[in-house]
């Protein structure tokens, strides 16, 4: 069972590297942010996998925090792309 979980993790890692190509290649800034965001989702799943492989619950807490951080980072990057600032109201138009 454990070895197949390793296989799942490696498959996700390969996927994450393929997505990294999109983040590297662009062509727009939005594409790069999207690439980083979906790599984050794969990393989150990998952290949960690690919790099951090593039978250690701490990884689950790390995964929760990673998921929240991934979400906030994407929102902040999108807001920065849209307004050029972090500390400002969303333009209501």
């Amino acid at each position: 069972m454990e070895s197949s979980l390793w296989g799942v993790g490696i498959f996700l890692l390969v996927n994450a590297f393929l997505c990294l190509y999109r983040a590297f290649r662009g062509p727009t800034v939005a594409d790069r942010i999207l690439g980083v965001n979906i790599i984050g989702t794969k990393t989150l799943v990998m952290l949960v996998l690690l919790a099951f492989v090593f039978r250690s619950r701490f990884y689950l807490d790390v995964a929760v925090v990673y998921g929240l951080l991934n979400f906030v980072v994407t929102l902040a990057a999108a807001r920065f792309l849209e307004t050029g600032r972090l500390k400002e109201e969303w333009k209501r138009c």
């Binding site: 939005a30 989702t41 989150l44 929760v64 998921g67 849209e82």
Partner: peptide
């Protein structure tokens, strides 16, 4: 964590699409 992904993933995509 699964519910978190279900809520956050479309919201993040929407924020990004809107910014773009």
């Amino acid at each position: 964590i699964a519910v978190l992904v279900l809520l956050s993933s479309p919201t993040a995509a929407h924020a990004l699409a809107r910014a773009a």
